[in-house]
């Protein structure tokens, strides 16, 4: 537990010193929100949720790549693999909550006639899924630039694809639009259920991807015997 928390603490300290990452985390969702505020009801909510997810995924991507050079040494020093990625995730989840809370308050007072509970659900799922997605991408793609391209593509597709179609369900943040429809357009509760299921399944799948990718990269090699 201590080890996981130490990793989490150091991740937060690192991130707090990366001014570029902080600026992006703070400004990007706000920009998304304000850009759509004049539109019809609820568009800004949809966009701010997407913006939050994108910003958190990007932060997770950078955290993952920066940690790479240190991980072999940490492994040798006695960390288990799961402590390494869980520590980073705990830090990112904490960061996500701290980042989303003000936006929830903003929506609470700025937007009316929407289901606030459901919006809270979207944000919580976002906090859960976005870091998993970013960390998974960084674990699979060694270089930041390629990871960023993947994130951009996913977010772009998220905005373009029709959420009712089947293709859109493959995207990691599809639940956001589905529950958003429930919250903003006051549709049936089925939308909420489908969204929750999608979010939960996505989270579990991404966690497996992260665990497996980290596990392979930092595995104990078969030719070494510790006595």
């Amino acid at each position: 537990m201590t080890r996981t928390l130490t990793v989490a603490e150091m991740t937060l300290r690192e991130t707090a010193r990366r001014r570029g990452v902080l600026v992006m985390l703070l400004v990007l969702p706000l920009a998304f929100y304000l850009a759509r505020r004049g539109d019809h009801l609820g568009q800004s909510i949809r966009f701010v949720c997407l913006g939050l997810s994108w910003a958190l995924s990007t932060a997770a991507l950078f955290v993952g790549s920066a940690a790479r050079s240190l991980e072999p040494r940490l492994r040798l020093s006695g960390y288990r693999t799961h402590q390494l990625f869980l520590g980073r995730l705990v830090a990112l989840w904490g960061l996500g909550v701290a980042l989303s809370a003000p936006y929830f308050v903003l929506i609470r007072f700025d937007q009316h006639d929407v289901r606030y509970g459901a919006i809270a659900v979207i944000m919580l799922l976002g906090v859960l899924v976005a870091p998993l997605f970013g960390l998974a991408v960084s674990a699979l793609l060694p270089r930041d630039l390629e990871g960023m391209l993947v994130l951009l593509t996913v977010v772009g597709l998220q905005m373009i694809l029709d959420p009712a179609g089947n293709a859109a369900r493959v995207l990691p943040f599809w639940y956001s639009r589905e529950i958003g429809t429930y919250a903003i357009d006051h549709t049936s509760v089925g939308y909420l259920d489908r969204g929750l299921l999608h979010g939960a399944v996505t989270a579990v799948l991404l966690l497996i991807v992260v665990a497996v990718a980290f596990g392979i990269r930092l595995r104990r090699r078969p030719h070494v015997r510790m006595v």
Binding site: R3, T6, M10, E14, R18, A66, L70, R73, L74
Partner: peptide
């Protein structure tokens, strides 16, 4: 083998915890 944005004592704490 070092983290760009951490200080020396933070490195010591991190590796030491392991």
């Amino acid at each position: 083998g070092t983290a760009d944005f951490l200080r020396a004592d933070e490195h010591f704490a991190l590796v030491g915890a392991g």
